[in-house]
Structures are given as structure tokens and as C-alpha cells.
């Protein structure tokens, strides 16, 4: 019985110690075959601590094993990389946000086409990381400061500079103008109403029989005008034909207008008539010989 107690107690203690040690080593080092260590340097304040994941091209290949503070202004970070993964030459390391609560991870970004690999214990050069939560907060602070400055300027302009008083004054004037326009509109509306009523009364006073008679007269007049227009069109055609003949020199009138010899003859005739008149005045007895019996 005593021997059995000792065996049971010893077994329990051994199992307990083994579980504790194995669990601690597994959590702290990733197991007994933890792969190999690599190093990276980041500036102070990178937010790194043990256990944060290390991603190679997005694949979890290890974790942060240790972070040492270098008084020269950097953090020397030990990366525990699993032995089945190798880090290509040209790979850069960057601290990137992991989630929204300020946790970080280390992202290893390899270059395409690299055929050689870094050795265990090498220091991975640092690349540019994506904006961290701190960067975003700093940007937010900057925007907040700008908004505050804008608010201050608006306050100075509208409160201290009397802008709000001016706005109130303009608003009051606008209100008065609107009231005045409203009165005008009311008066115009009233006059329009009266005019409308008068128009209705006038339209009501018009005799429909007279209107019908007038309309018939208008229709008759319109028909007459149409007949006159038609006759005018005929006359116009005749005049146009006559003018055409005149231009062409056909007919008596055309020849009279277009033949220069006719003009010369007529001019000669007028000259002879003038000389004849002169001679008649001078010697009337030659042409007029009155005898009474």
C-alpha cells in the first residue's frame, strides 16, 4: 500500500512537471525543435513584444522571440523562424498593425525571383511598413488641429468681427423685403382678381348672336380678300409679261423703249416742231391766211 502511494504520487508529480515544462517551452520557444533565429532592427517605439507573429509573404513562419533595447536608438528583435521556412535574400522586415487594438506583427516581404537565401542569424534589413495605428491617430490629431484652427478663424470672423451681427442685419432686411414683396404680391393679386372679374363680366356681356354675325362677316370678307388676291395675282402675271416684252424689245412699246433710232427720229421731230413754231410765231401769215369773203 505504501509502495503504491509512492508510485502514484511520483507519477503524478512527474506528469505535472513534464506538462508544465513542456507547455512553457512550447509557448515560449515554439517547441524543442524551434528552427533558427534571425534578427531585425527597428526604431524605438515600434510596439514589439514576445510572441507576436512573423509573417513571410503573409504566411506565419514564426514569432518574436526576444526584444532588446539598444541605447543607440533601435530595438534588436530576435525572430524565431520555423526550420521548414527559409528567408530569401533581399527580404525586408517591417512592423505592421495586427488588428485594430494596437497589436503588431512583423511582415517579411521577399523580392520576386530570389534564388539564394539568408543564413540563420542574419539580420534582415528593415523596409517601409504600412501606417500604424499611431500614424493614423497622428493624422487624426492633425485633422483635429486643422478643424480647431478653422473653428477659431470662424469664431474670430463671425463672433469677434461682428459677422453674425451683419448676418442678423441682412436677415432682418431680407425679412422686411420679403414682407414688402408679399404686400406687393397681395395688391397685385387683388388687382388681378378685379381684372379677372371685369373680364368675366365683359365676356358675359358679349351677345353670342352678334358674335356669330361678326364671324360670318369676317368669313365673307376673308373670301372676298381671297378673290381679290387671286385677281391681283392674275394682274401681276400680266404686268410681268408686259414688262418682259418691254425688256425684250418686242411690240411697239418695246421698240419705242429699246430702239435708239426711234429716239433720234423723235428728237429730230421735236426740233422741227420747235423751228416750225418759231417760224409760225414770226410769220403767221405764211401759215394762217384768213379771208372773209
Amino acid at each position: 500500500m505504501k509502495r503504491r502511494d509512492e508510485v502514484l504520487v511520483g507519477l503524478l508529480l512527474i506528469v505535472s512537471v513534464a506538462a508544465g515544462v513542456a507547455g512553457t517551452v512550447w509557448l515560449a520557444r515554439g517547441g524543442l525543435s524551434a528552427g533558427y533565429d534571425m534578427y531585425a532592427r527597428f526604431p524605438w517605439g515600434a510596439g514589439l513584444k514576445n510572441g507576436q507573429p512573423v509573417l513571410l509573404a503573409g504566411v506565419n513562419v514564426g514569432f518574436v522571440k526576444g526584444v532588446k533595447l539598444d541605447p543607440a536608438g533601435s530595438l534588436v528583435v530576435t525572430l524565431a523562424v520555423q526550420k521548414e521556412y527559409r528567408v530569401p535574400d533581399g527580404t525586408t522586415a517591417a512592423v505592421e498593425p495586427n488588428g485594430i487594438f494596437g497589436d503588431q506583427l512583423i511582415a517579411l516581404t521577399p523580392t520576386l525571383g530570389a534564388s539564394t537565401y539568408m543564413a540563420a542569424g542574419d539580420t534582415i534589413p528593415t523596409g517601409a511598413g504600412t501606417p500604424t495605428t499611431g500614424d493614423l491617430l497622428a493624422k487624426g490629431d492633425s485633422i483635429a488641429r486643422d478643424v480647431e484652427a478653422l473653428t477659431g478663424a470662424l469664431r474670430a470672423e463671425f463672433v469677434s468681427g461682428g459677422g453674425i451681427a451683419d448676418l442678423r442685419k441682412v436677415t432682418g432686411e431680407m425679412a422686411a423685403l420679403v414682407a414688402e414683396l408679399g404686400q406687393i404680391a397681395t395688391a397685385q393679386s387683388r388687382e388681378l382678381t378685379i381684372t379677372q372679374q371685369q373680364l368675366r363680366a365683359t365676356l358675359a356681356a358679349v351677345d353670342s348672336a352678334v358674335v356669330d354675325s361678326t364671324m360670318r362677316s369676317i368669313r365673307t370678307s376673308t373670301a372676298n380678300v381671297a378673290a381679290i388676291t387671286e385677281e391681283l395675282q392674275v394682274a401681276q402675271a400680266q404686268v410681268r409679261s408686259m414688262l418682259t416684252k418691254l425688256d425684250n424689245g418686242t411690240g411697239t412699246a418695246g421698240k419705242l423703249l429699246n430702239d435708239p433710232s426711234v429716239y433720234a427720229r423723235l428728237d429730230m421731230l421735236l426740233m422741227r416742231l420747235d423751228s416750225l413754231a418759231i417760224d409760225v410765231k414770226a410769220n403767221p401769215r405764211r401759215y394762217i391766211n384768213l379771208r372773209v369773203f
Binding site: 508544465g20 507547455g23 512553457t24 509557448l27 515560449a28 515554439g30 513584444k49 514576445n50 510572441g51 507576436q52 507573429p53 506565419n60 514569432f63 497589436d103
Partner: peptide, 21 residues
């Protein structure tokens, strides 16, 4: 599993086990 293990290892130091003991 990978999420759980990542969280288990995050910020772990062996003294936490000593603290428990």
C-alpha cells in the same frame, strides 16, 4: 488552431507559469 496558438504565444513569458505556481 493557428489563431488560438498565436494568441497563446502572444506576450507569454515563463514567469507567468511561475506566478501561477
Amino acid at each position: 488552431t493557428v489563431d488560438f496558438v498565436d494568441g497563446l504565444r502572444l506576450s507569454f513569458i515563463p514567469f507567468q507559469v511561475v506566478y501561477s505556481l
